[in-house]
């Protein structure tokens, strides 16, 4: 199929040449004009663009309002990670709280897609706008839990997973979580 870029079909060869020449001349005029425009480049190290808070860069592990580690090591982030850069081992604290015994993100592999943050059921893993993480030694880009943990709740400061989860931890027993009834008395005969 022929696509016509010129509005009107040129009526004869002379007009065709004329139209062609005009189009070419217009092109040259445009580039010439651009030559004298001020470049729109923002020069990076001298000028740092303010980034929106939802920019996806360096990953952190946040804490709940009580200061506890939010991460329950459910493996959802490592499962969803398209480049498999997250690894961890879940374990249990004395009070029954599930946590990550170790948690490792290989930022040399991370593509900052943000799927981990989307998958995280506890708002623990979050991406921050901090992107200047280059290192000369690639092993320094492998972050452990202590490197990832921050002392705040990030974008979701109020959520506390264990207040909703229904499992018994130091935060609450059966029936003490948000929206829970008192435990059923199995032996009751009341209707």
């Amino acid at each position: 199929m022929r696509v016509d870029l010129i509005d009107k079909e040129p009526s004869g060869p002379i007009q065709a040449v004329w139209e062609g020449a005009r189009a070419i001349a217009a092109g040259f005029a445009l580039t010439l004009k651009h030559l004298f425009r001020k470049p729109i480049t923002e020069e990076y190290p001298e000028f740092k663009r303010p980034l929106p808070s939802r920019t996806r860069a360096r990953i952190v592990l946040t804490r709940d309002p009580d200061g506890g580690e939010r991460c329950v090591a459910c493996y959802l982030c490592s499962a969803v990670c398209p480049v498999s850069c997250i690894s961890m081992q879940s374990a249990e604290r004395e009070d029954g709280r599930r946590y990550a015994a170790w948690f490792r993100i290989n930022f040399a592999r991370c593509i900052y897609c943000g799927l981990c943050e989307e998958a995280c059921p506890t708002s623990s893993i979050q991406l921050t706008p901090m992107f200047e993480t280059c290192e000369r030694d690639i092993l320094k880009l492998v972050y452990e839990k202590e490197d990832l943990l921050v002392n705040h709740g990030g974008k979701d400061p109020d959520y506390n997973f264990y207040k909703h989860a229904g499992v018994v931890t130091a935060i609450g027993g059966k029936g003490e979580h948000a929206g829970e009834d008192q435990p059923v008395n199995v032996r009751s005969n009341m209707p």
């Binding site: 580039t31 651009h34 030559l35 004298f36 425009r37 001020k38 470049p39 729109i40 480049t41 020069e43």
Partner: peptide, 10 residues
């Protein structure tokens, strides 16, 4: 340089 300027960069 000139190509850059034509493309509105440095």
């Amino acid at each position: 340089k000139l190509l850059g300027r034509i493309q509105v960069r440095y």
